[in-house]
Amino acid sequence: MTRVVARRLIAMLPTVIGITLVAFVIARSAPGDPLAMQGDLGLRAGGATIQQMREYRRLMGLDEPIVSGYLRWLWHLLHGDLGSSFRDGRPVLVLLAEALPVTLLLSVASLVLGYLLAVPVGILSAAKPGGWFDRASSGLFFALYSLPVQWVALLLVLCPTGLPIHGLHSEGERGVGDLIAHLGLPILCLTYGSLAVISRFLRSSMLEQMGQDYVRTARAKGLVEAVVILRHALPNSLLSLITLLGLTFPALASGAVIVERIYGLPGIGKLTFDAVLGRDVPVLMGTVTLAGAVTMLSALTSDLMYAAADPRISLAARRP
């Protein structure tokens, strides 16, 4: 297993280089010429003084030719030095460390909720494909799938749900219950769209399993249909859901940009938005790199989990 993990990590190296290169090129292309920052742009640049920006660009290699500049920024990255925010001078690494838990909490909670809702629906749909439940649920989920997230988020703000609509905590509160209440609506916004994907994926995977010989055998020996489905077909289908797990993160992070903005949650999405708004290049570079890295790691994790859970799969199966 260690060799497998090592091999996968090495195979990821080009992707890591690509991700960091993209972040570097974005930062390099940002208007860094003090003259370009006059007027409107200068105002948008928040608290950054021209001196500060020059210093940063020199330090991070943004002024150098692209290859040596990139190597210099990579060097800083490997040492955990991402520079400081133009806005308030705080280290980017600290800002990222503060924001990441919020987005992770949102994502994980919405993943769990999504699976809790969609898995039973997928099972029931597969039990009677084409039945009324199958058609009604797939119709409903299909409609949810097409709803723009900013619309749903705003509608939920308008609905008298009684739940708080801004921030992580109420004034003077620090309790867990308060936090959960504040995250309720945002989590809902991030969850509804994935229901269709998960339930349909599970349904088609279940239907495929139901056509297998071992299911026929289970039926032939006289098992109740519910047992056939839950004990025989389901476990194999659930395995394939693991692959979906790691692949959902980028979608969640995209949604989080909007949801965090509307509900005022201090996560990676809001950090990115504020960085773009204030032309805070160091922070922007940090969030782009982090988002790419987390996505890649979540894909890796789900691959490894899949391999660990399903003995038929071997990550080392690649032919020489």
């Binding site: 692949l247 799969i313 990550l315 690649r318």
Partner: peptide
């Protein structure tokens, strides 16, 4: 096809595994 929803709108699929429920060796060519 079963008419599975395009997962690409939500999901980035590695090797397009999300497109087919059948297990494909991860990293397999």
């Amino acid at each position: 096809a079963q008419g599975a929803l395009d997962p690409s709108a939500f999901i980035v699929s590695d090797q397009n595994r999300a497109m087919s429920p059948a297990p494909i060796p991860a990293g397999g060519d």
